[in-house]
Design a protein around this nucleic acid. Structure first.
Length: 259
DNA sequence: TATAATGTTAGACT
DNA sequence: AAGTCTAACATTAT
């Protein structure tokens, strides 16, 4: 569920309350999470985003890495409110508790796992240097939408924002990545930075169940141009937005003005 | 009841 | 060998 803007929102919000706080206890509510890092007694230094990963840095150099996958959410609770349905993990502090909610149970939480990105990846939130994406794409034949969503190339873009970025750049999502011109890549890079930046400012996109750390909906759904707008008119040319399946995911685009 | 859902990846196939 | 594609993970909401 959460893509870069949603994960960025959670990290920024956690950084307003957690640094300096000591973890009192970690309660594993869903045993499917497996062996959770032994964090009791550790003090938090900061929370960092890397792609869609949330890295919780502890004072002794230990790092716990959380990935929310499809339906993971984090909620900050104080007082004695009941724990929400689908709670899978509770991290307790003196000033409140951090709750992991995850209906589909794909989220993972472990210590510096091998599947975390080993090195800093391209961060599309910062506008990439000219030509960077074109160089990475090389002669690849996979669809440009799949390319944008491949976390090994650029980290943080998921299905909603891939559709929105390609619409803004007026590029057909089915085009082979290697076939885009330098000018088209430039548009994609600029569209990515602008769309992700706006989405962060809006605290994410709430199309169904996304909420920020404090349980509040984001507002970026008000800025979506194609995602989930099948059959509605394109805001640039008036043609009807189409939905196709690519790699098993819904893909929305304007068949007339995206080339 | 059938379908789709904001992610990732192991394994199959080119 | 490297690139690409598909199914699977678990569960809910429509």
């Amino acid at each position: 569920m959460p893509e870069l803007p949603e994960v960025e929102t959670l990290c920024r919000q956690m950084n307003t309350i957690l640094p300096g706080e000591k973890i009192l206890a970690v309660e594993v509510v869903d045993p499917r999470l497996g062996n959770v890092p032994p964090l009791a007694g550790k003090r938090i230094v900061s929370v960092e985003r890397q792609g869609k990963y949330i890295r919780i840095e502890m004072e002794n150099g230990m790092t716990a890495v959380l990935h929310l996958r499809m339906t993971g959410r984090l909620l900050w609770q104080t007082g004695d409110a009941p724990v929400p349905p689908y709670t899978r993990l509770i991290i307790r502090f003196a000033i409140g508790r951090l709750v992991l909610i995850d209906p589909r149970r794909f989220a993972t939480f472990c210590l510096q796992p091998m599947d975390a990105p080993p090195a800093p990846l391209e961060n599309p939130l910062e506008e990439l240097p000219a030509g960077r994406l074109r160089k990475i794409a090389g002669k690849r034949r996979l669809p440009v939408k799949s390319f944008l969503m491949d976390q090994r190339f650029i980290a943080g873009i998921g299905n909603i924002y891939a559709c929105e970025i390609l619409y803004r750049a007026a590029v057909d999502p089915r085009r082979p990545a290697g076939s885009l011109t330098a000018a088209e890549w430039r548009k994609v890079e600029k569209a990515a930075a602008a769309i992700l930046e706006l989405a962060v400012a809006c605290r994410g996109t709430t199309v169904s169940d996304w909420r920020d750390l404090f349980g509040v909906s984001g507002t970026n759904q008000n800025h979506l141009e194609v995602y989930s707008r099948e059959g509605e008119p394109c805001r640039r040319c008036g043609s009807l937005i189409e939905r196709i399946a690519m790699g098993g995911r819904g893909t929305w685009f304007c068949p007339v003005c995206q080339h």
